[in-house]
């Protein structure tokens, strides 16, 4: 498994853990105390931020060559997938309130940073999954 795969795995694990935990906590708090306070459950999304330390944890690969044309094309396709996912996320985040609340309703601008953060999370999650899929998840196609 090379460095990019290790970073991708750590991002998938931290983002999944953060999203699942915050989703469960927010849902429980919503049932118990209602919506304004229930958003405190989103604090668990901070776990996703721990994935940002992975480039510091995983050192550069040993060997004469650590990055070549295949890695470059894999990273380019992964970045494209990530951008597509974040674009889709922002599009859905804009359209859902319009569809659910109606055209005359208004929402707090406080949601805008959340949408930005969500777009970043969706980018990194899809980027990581695309990296892992293209490298073959460290199996037959990976360095062991």
């Amino acid at each position: 498994m090379n460095r990019a795969q290790k970073i991708a795995w750590s991002l998938v694990i931290t983002i999944s853990t953060g999203v699942i935990l915050s989703g469960i906590t927010t849902a429980i708090l919503y049932v118990k105390v209602g919506m304004p306070k229930a958003s405190a459950g989103l604090a668990f999304l901070g776990i996703a931020g721990l994935g940002g330390f992975s480039p510091l944890i995983f050192r550069k690969d040993k060997g004469k060559v650590t990055f070549d044309e295949r890695d470059k094309s894999i990273k380019r396709r992964a970045a494209l997938s990530g951008f597509a996912a974040s674009y889709l996320f922002v599009g859905l985040a804009c359209m859902l309130p319009f569809s659910v609340l109606g055209p005359m309703a208004s929402i707090s601008v406080g949601w805008l940073p959340n949408i930005f953060g969500g777009a970043a999370l969706s980018f990194f999650f899809v980027w990581s999954v695309a990296i892992l899929v293209q490298y073959g998840r460290g199996g037959k196609d990976g360095n062991k």
């Binding site: 090379n2 004469k64 060559v65 650590t66």
Partner: peptide
């Protein structure tokens, strides 16, 4: 595979992928 990778300036993973037919190399490679 590592020796071939070093001589051609790519990673061992890339040689492995080319051998397995999973990756089509560029013309220079």
């Amino acid at each position: 595979q590592q020796q071939l990778a070093d001589k051609t300036g790519v990673t061992r993973q890339t040689i492995l992928a080319i051998e397995a037919g999973k990756y089509a190399p560029s013309l220079p490679l």
